[in-house]
């Protein structure tokens, strides 16, 4: 028979070895629990060590979460845009009569303008006070980049030439796209500042507070009085 008594002996030895190993582990566990029961400071030190390790793991996980999101640019934008609409509507209500008429007029004119452009560009749907959804063509014209090169581009451009409010959310296809895109956005901000320098003080003030952030596989760019809130909404959505 294959193996014979030699094999049986070996198995027995191996089994005994395993039993010894298990016994050793069991003894160590008993010793550990005994110390935990009797030495209260040891117990606290052990809990402290576990807590600190857990904290480090949590922080690493949190920073790892910084690598981005698996959601699409469209999904992220959908979470940010209702927030955008809500805040801008309430902001318009607060303006004094003269300003309200001016803002409403600008928005209306802008929306009309947007509608005409929409027709040219094949029709956009999302239009808000101060900004409206743009097309891939707009993205190409304004940033000099092809939307198809990215995993997703959601761009809301100013609806009139006198507005500077805009929002851009891009899901990058790879990390190396981030630098070029950031440069393009910075150029856009600089170009807008040059355009409004001297006569559009309010617009320049908004451009000064523009937010351009790359977070993992996403880039966020926003010019708006409430840019910080939109960025927070973007982070929450991620």
């Amino acid at each position: 028979m294959y193996g014979g008594p030699y094999e049986k002996g070996a198995m027995k030895k191996r089994g005994d070895g395993m039993k010894d190993g298990i016994k050793k582990i069991r003894d160590r566990i008993y010793a550990f629990t005994d110390i935990m029961k009797t030495d209260i400071l040891f117990r606290y030190n052990f809990i402290k060590a576990v807590l600190i390790i857990s904290l480090i793991v949590f922080v690493v996980f949190l920073l790892g979460g910084n690598t981005g999101s698996s959601r699409s640019a469209e999904e992220i934008a959908e979470s940010v845009v209702p927030h955008l609409m809500q805040t801008q509507q309430s902001g318009t209500e607060e303006a004094p009569d003269g300003q309200e008429q001016e803002t409403a007029g600008a928005a209306e004119g802008g929306q009309d303008g947007q509608t005409e452009e929409d027709a040219e560009n094949g029709g956009d749907t999302g239009v808000f006070d101060g900004m409206g959804q743009a097309t891939a063509l707009d993205f190409k014209r304004i940033f000099g980049l092809n939307a198809e090169d990215y995993e997703g581009v959601e761009y809301f451009k100013p609806i009139s030439q006198m507005d500077v409010e805009e929002l851009l959310i891009v899901r990058l296809a790879s990390d190396d796209q981030a630098e070029a895109l950031e440069e393009a956005v910075e150029e856009r901000v600089d170009s807008q500042k040059t355009s409004f320098d001297g006569y559009g003080a309010a617009q320049c003030a908004l451009l000064e507070k523009a937010i351009v952030k790359t977070r993992g596989n996403f880039l966020f760019y926003c010019v708006s009085p409430d840019a910080e809130q939109y960025y927070q909404a973007f982070l929450d959505a991620m």
Binding site: I40, Y44, I47, K48, L51, L55, F58
Partner: peptide, 20 residues
Amino acid sequence: VLMIFSIIFNYVMGLDIQER
């Protein structure tokens, strides 16, 4: 999670300080 950590950590540290 951070808040729960803070609770457990400071609770244990209170006991630890008392014992020490």
